[in-house]
């Protein structure tokens, strides 16, 4: 007897995804309207459609400052969360996130080097961070392959962690000789999306669209990895290909995010956990849901950073780390109580 559940499951999945996606436009609108100067929704819509005088303060604030910034924040939130979710599934490790591979540290080194040389902005820090991110990935994969031809996950993590430490040491060295740029570097490392423009948004969207497209198509494969890499191979998953695809996409996303927003911690670690508690572990739902929850979380965090001590602004990375650390402790406490005796934190 067959279970007449396939279509029902699909419909349920679509309904749940719509539910997770619904808050995105609402929060997006809220974040564009609210800030150090609050602008009404009607006025915001008029500004967006060019119905206000271009040189009017409201139009300038909405079109040249807030809209590109909120776009960047949403895209970075979605990218970091998706990367963390994919890595936690791939490595079957709830403590993994996009930075586990070491690419994040490599990208940060590139950006810090550019700032120390006095090259800030799109042409300097951003390009250097992206180049260093890909360079880091190549070094990590080449080293892993040289050590272990089968590209075992443990080898890649170990090489990633060592590379991270090496890149961090180099970064400290660069900062020691950075002279008057130390303050800029320090602020950059705290993570901030202030001053981001349409160019940054385009860069983020250019990375997110293809990378998210690829990762979202790997939901079944990531489910198999989350059960176990050996099991994934036994059921027919091309484990090496999937691993490389996910790692290249995650590296591209992390590299671009770090280049645009600096080091924004905990989003990639905590958001997939929180989403898994709501949606369950099925990556066909979990991956897109993590993207939307990550976008909403970072937009609200950025809004808080902008209005909490206005007209001053808090670095968003500091805020996400503070909230993330507390959230993580709560999640860990709950999981230990709920799944005592099991091998992993399980949702």
């Amino acid at each position: 007897m067959e279970r007449p559940g396939v279509d029902r499951d699909k419909k349920r999945r679509v309904r749940r995804l719509a539910l997770y996606g619904a808050p995105v436009p609402l929060v997006f609108a809220l974040c564009v309207c609210v800030g150090s100067v609050n602008i009404g929704l009607g006025q915001t819509i008029r500004a967006l459609f060019g119905l206000l005088e271009a040189a009017s303060p409201d139009s300038l604030i909405i079109r040249t400052v807030r809209l590109p910034r909120v776009l960047c924040v949403a895209l970075v939130g979605a990218a970091l969360s998706l990367s963390g979710c994919a890595m936690q599934g791939l490595l079957r490790n709830p403590l993994a996130d996009g930075s586990t591979l070491g690419v994040s540290a490599g990208a940060a080194l590139g950006a810090v080097l550019a700032i120390a040389l006095g090259r800030t902005g799109m042409g300097g820090a951003v390009v250097m961070a992206v180049l260093f991110a890909f360079g880091s990935l190549l070094v990590i994969l080449a080293l892993s392959f040289a050590l272990d031809g089968s590209l075992a996950t443990n080898t890649i993590i170990l090489v990633g962690v060592i590379f991270s430490m090496f890149a961090s040491a180099l970064m400290s060295l660069v900062i020691a000789f950075a002279g008057e740029h130390v303050r800029t570097i320090t602020f950059w490392t705290m993570g901030s999306l202030a001053g981001t423009g349409y160019g940054h948004a385009l860069l983020l969207a250019g990375a997110l669209l293809p990378c998210a497209g690829i990762i979202l198509c790997l939901g079944r494969e990531l489910n198999a990895f989350a059960v176990g890499e050996e099991n994934a191979r036994h059921v027919g998953v091309d484990v090496k290909r999937v691993k490389l695809l996910v790692m290249v996409c995650v590296s591209a996303l992390i590299g671009v995010c770090v280049s645009v927003g600096g080091t924004i911690g905990f989003v990639g670690l905590v958001i997939p956990h929180m989403t898994r508690m709501l949606s369950g572990p099925d990556h066909k739902v979990l991956l897109p849901a993590s993207m939307t929850v990550g976008a909403v979380f970072l937009m609200l965090a950025d809004l808080t950073a902008r209005i909490l001590v206005k007209p001053l602004e808090l670095p968003i990375g500091v805020l996400t780390s503070l909230v993330g650390a507390v959230a993580f402790v709560l999640i860990f406490y709950r999981s230990r109580r709920g799944a005592a005796g099991h091998e992993y934190v399980g949702y």
């Binding site: 059960v227 027919g236 572990p281 099991h342």
Partner: peptide, 18 residues
């Protein structure tokens, strides 16, 4: 063991991946 809270049916369904 299994890392995350998949259902029994989820795990068995993976057998049909190929």
């Amino acid at each position: 063991g299994v890392g995350y809270a998949y259902t029994v049916e989820d795990v068995v369904r993976l057998g049909r991946y190929a």
